[in-house]
Each structure stands twice: as structure tokens, then as C-alpha cells.
Amino acid sequence: MLTLRLLPEDELAGVADPERCVELAVPRGTEDRITVRTLRLTPADLVRLRTETDVALADIRNEVMRAEAAWRQRLEEWHADGRAAVEANEPDMALLSRVLEGLWASV
């Protein structure tokens, strides 16, 4: 879990870049332990980080929604093909096989 802390004045005394007054703690896990790396940022850096993160997450959400829509479209097509094959007097075994393979691949 990320933690943010605004550094108090006394901790910034004598620091080369007092504009970097926001501390971001980032935990990193390895196989046997967890370490915490701290970064000092300016408030402008923090805003930029937040903005870039929001843009990246929006892109990921859009890709997921597109993939889900494409999957639903394929599922509808497989369903329609399967229904047509079942309703036929003599089911097309190749068609049923493709429908089953498609459904299996979607699992």
C-alpha cells in the first residue's frame, strides 16, 4: 500500500531541494521480505503522477471493455450457430464441434 506524507519543516531544514516536500513510500515484496522505498516529490510531481496514472488506468479500462464486447459478440455468434445446428433435423457435426471448441476456449 502506498503512503503519502507531507514532510514537516524541521525535516526539510538543510535539504538540498526543499521543494520535494512530499514523501511517497512504496513497498516492494520479494520472496522472503518486504522493503519500503521512499521517494521525495514536489507537489507538482505528485499531481503529474496522479494524472498519468488516471490516464493509464482509463486506457486499461477501455481495452478491457473492448475485449469484453468482442468476447460477448463471439459468444452470441457461437450461441446462434449452436442453436441453428440443434434446430436442424440433421445437426452439422463440424459446426457443433466449432461451437464447442469456441465455448471451451472462452473458459
Rank of each mutant, 00 (worst) to 15 (best):
M1Y: 14
M1H: 15
L2I: 15
L4H: 06
L4Q: 10
L4P: 03
R5V: 08
L7T: 04
P8H: 07
E9Y: 04
D10H: 15
D10L: 06
E11C: 04
L12W: 00
A13H: 13
G14A: 02
D17M: 05
D17A: 07
E19A: 15
R20K: 11
R20I: 01
R20P: 00
R20L: 03
C21S: 13
V22E: 02
V22A: 00
V22P: 00
V22L: 02
E23W: 04
L24K: 03
L24D: 03
A25P: 05
V26L: 12
V26H: 10
R28Y: 10
E31K: 12
E31G: 14
D32V: 06
D32T: 11
R33T: 08
R33S: 12
I34N: 08
T35F: 06
V36P: 08
V36Y: 03
R37W: 04
T38R: 12
T38Q: 07
L39Q: 12
L39T: 07
L39Y: 15
R40I: 01
L41C: 04
L41S: 01
T42R: 03
T42V: 05
P43W: 02
P43H: 05
D45Y: 05
D45Q: 13
L46I: 05
V47C: 13
R48N: 09
R48P: 00
R48H: 08
R48L: 13
L49Q: 04
L49P: 00
L49M: 08
R50I: 10
R50F: 09
T51S: 10
E52Q: 13
E52Y: 00
T53L: 15
T53I: 09
V55T: 14
A56M: 11
A56R: 08
I60V: 15
I60N: 06
I60W: 09
E63L: 15
E63A: 14
E63S: 15
E63C: 12
E63F: 14
E63H: 10
V64N: 07
E68V: 15
A69E: 11
A70R: 12
R72W: 10
R72Y: 09
R72V: 05
Q73Y: 09
R74N: 07
R74M: 09
L75Y: 15
E76S: 07
E76R: 10
E76D: 14
E77I: 03
W78C: 05
W78Y: 14
W78N: 10
H79D: 06
H79I: 02
A80S: 13
A80V: 10
G82Q: 03
G82I: 00
G82A: 01
R83S: 05
A84I: 02
A84T: 02
V86E: 01
V86R: 04
E87F: 06
E87I: 03
P91I: 07
M93P: 10
M93S: 12
A94Y: 03
L95P: 02
S97R: 12
R98F: 06
R98Q: 06
V99W: 02
V99S: 02
L100W: 11
L100V: 10
E101P: 02
L103N: 03
L103I: 13
A105Y: 05
A105F: 05
A105C: 03
S106K: 00
S106R: 00
S106M: 11
V107D: 13
V107F: 11
